[in-house]
Design a binder for these strands. Structure first.
Length: 365
DNA sequence: CACCCGTGGAA
DNA sequence: TTTCCAAGGGT
């Protein structure tokens, strides 16, 4: 009777993924970069970012010596920018305190910023074959179904139980690459077979012993977490244009889009008596309103009202450390949030077609 | 423990 | 259209 690990490993060898860009080597640095990018992010999204990043920063020393802005620029659009900031900080820490050598145990790896227990275990298993358990979304979903855990996986007690299960199921043999194959098997089974909706149980090596399959309750597991109402925020983005350059400022870190370049913003309350148009009522400068951009985060919804304004030479917006005037094409190469990239494309079209901003504004009034 | 932190794709 | 959430970690 093959063990749980045996089934998983055998399945992985014949049905798992073997040609992802970060596979095929045991370089802990390459594996580290991939694992960080893959946190809460789908494989297809990560691949082009990973390839660009590895081309620019092929090793620890290169990453450590890079400018923070250059690291974030390659992270631009990927989201969760603290990952990029922590990655860079960790690389510098490795150079200054570890002789530029990546630590070779999960417990040591976990000490690095941005690396928790699961990510540390994944790197250790892939790069060094260490016998340690991961517990990512895939593993949780598989275990919860396999053992029939009808509780919220987010709870602390349930989480602890899942860690215990994951460790108990680890392969006992010490075969070469067993841990790498086993760990990849968990991820691949979760991504390809034991999916959240419509799992392909007919292809699952764990089908016979799976509680959820036996009960016919795969569509009820994992138990979804209670939904929270998402608040709504409204802001005006000032697109200040002078001599075909646009004004950007670097956002404070921590915070949303921390360390990224963005337009000056004016928050306003849509429920108040004043519409957002009244916010600049005292300003006589003509402006051009762009269509509202709705950007949805995990925890709130952001409505952006871009407002383009041509400014003269004598104005208050002079460059400081965290501010700059740049061309649109230059701005596109900076670390900017995804929705800002969309706005910049629109700006490029407007400026490029030499639209009379003042007349458009009058038309709007 | 609760909340924060992005984005795009699937259903 | 809205909703959900994917190779989580930090505070």
């Amino acid at each position: 009777m093959p063990t749980f690990a045996d089934r998983l490993i055998r399945w992985q060898l014949e049905a798992g993924r073997h040609h992802l860009p970060w596979q095929g080597n045991q370089d802990p640095y390459a594996i580290w970069i991939a694992e960080i990018m893959l946190q809460q992010t789908q494989v297809t999204t990560v691949i082009p970012y990973y390839q660009r990043f590895m081309r620019a920063f092929p090793d620890i020393a290169t990453l450590a010596s890079a400018a923070p802005d250059d690291v974030l620029a390659l992270w631009s659009g990927l989201g969760y920018y603290a990952r990029g900031r922590n990655l860079h900080q960790a690389a510098r820490l490795l150079v200054s305190e570890h002789g530029g050598v990546f630590p070779a145990s999960a417990s040591a790896i976990e000490q690095l910023p941005g690396i928790g227990r699961s990510t540390a275990a994944a790197i250790a298993a892939f790069a060094f074959g260490e016998r340690c358990a991961i517990l990512d979304g895939n593993v949780k979903r598989i275990l919860v179904r396999y053992f029939g855990v009808y509780s919220h996986p987010a709870g602390k007690a349930v989480e602890a139980r899942l860690w215990q299960m994951a460790e108990k199921l680890l392969p006992v043999n010490n075969q070469e690459k067993a841990m790498a194959t086993y760990t990849q098997a968990f991820m691949d089974l979760g991504a390809l077979v034991c999916t959240r909706s419509r799992p392909k149980c007919e292809y699952c090596p764990l089908q016979q012993e799976c509680v959820a399959f036996t009960h016919g309750s795969t569509d009820q597991l994992p138990v979804p977490k209670p939904q929270k109402t998402r608040p709504e925020k409204n802001i005006i983005h000032l697109l200040l244009v002078k001599d075909s350059k646009i004004f950007l400022e670097k956002r404070p870190s921590p915070g949303i889009w921390g360390g990224l370049w963005c337009f000056p913003e004016i928050p306003f309350d849509s429920s108040s008596d004043n519409s957002h148009s009244a916010n600049l009522a005292s300003c006589n400068t003509p402006f051009f309103e762009f269509p509202c951009i709705i950007h949805t985060f995990t925890h709130f919804r952001l409505n952006i009202y871009p407002r383009l304004i041509h400014v003269g030479c004598n104005n208050a917006f002079e460059e400081k450390d965290n501010q700059c005037w740049v061309t649109v094409s230059a701005a596109m190469k900076l670390a900017i949030p995804a929705p800002i990239r969309k706005v910049l494309l629109t700006v490029s079209n407007v400026l490029g077609s030499s639209v009379n901003v003042a007349s458009i504004n009058e038309k709007n009034e």
